[in-house]
Amino acid sequence: METKDIHWSTVIKPHTSLLDIDLKELWKYRDLLFLLVKRDFVAFYKQTILGPIWFFIQPLLTTLMYFLIFGRIANLSTDGVPPILFYLAGVTCWSYISECLLKTSDTFIANASIFGKVYFPRLIIPLSIVISNFVRFGIQFSLFLMVWLYYFVNGQVQVTFAIFLLPYLVLIMALLGLGFGIIFSSLTTKYRDLRFLLAFGVQLLMFATPVVYPLSMASEKMRWFLVVNPFTSLIETFRYGFTGSGSFSWMHLGYSSLVAVILLVFGVVIFNKVEKSFMDTV
């Protein structure tokens, strides 16, 4: 047949190689990415009276709660940082990480009805979730910045050079959340148990991360356990940058970055594999 020399623009095959990720296609769907982010925001505060203010209320109330329980009742140290600022820093970072992780881990199950009807690069969905959460983080970070400015002007906190690492920290947080999230999302299509495991796993993980206590409080024995947790150095560095207390180590930060990259690559590979046929198992 003469069809041999036609250039086919779409070829659908059963098996593709592991690293067959079509970035060009992903770029073609950038408008969808933008619209999905927009949808997340509009849908979030539709029919609420306070609207976008809810983005502030959530971290404020959580911070207040932590302040009462961990600060006043449990009397945990905050390394000399004003407690409100200390908890707010932890809450802002942690809610970004956990939202990225939890929401992306639901990608396939939550979107099964769309995925079952139309094709677009599936990776668009977790990416849109990370971006929505980034914008949300931006709003909550501005709240943190206002509180921080108050203490800074009053001379209660010092800044260190690590403050300039902020964009990098945010990026690594996003990559870690995304990496973990898409790995779990790929596995939950078949083994739903993981969903339940993950829901409280993330809750427990918060206590294995110095969110409500400083790393310096941990005993030598426990320390290695906290350092193995890739989220630890991110939150510690964040605090170190903005308040001058806490710890900073290039090695720990490097470790977190390495974990993030490995997880992400691994995640994209299995995500890519699962997206081809997950409709048959979901």
């Binding site: 036609i6 779409t10 659908i12 059963p14």
Partner: peptide
Amino acid sequence: VTAPTTGIIKAQ
């Protein structure tokens, strides 16, 4: 929406 078990689809 889902991938074939065997075979190939080509489209222009």
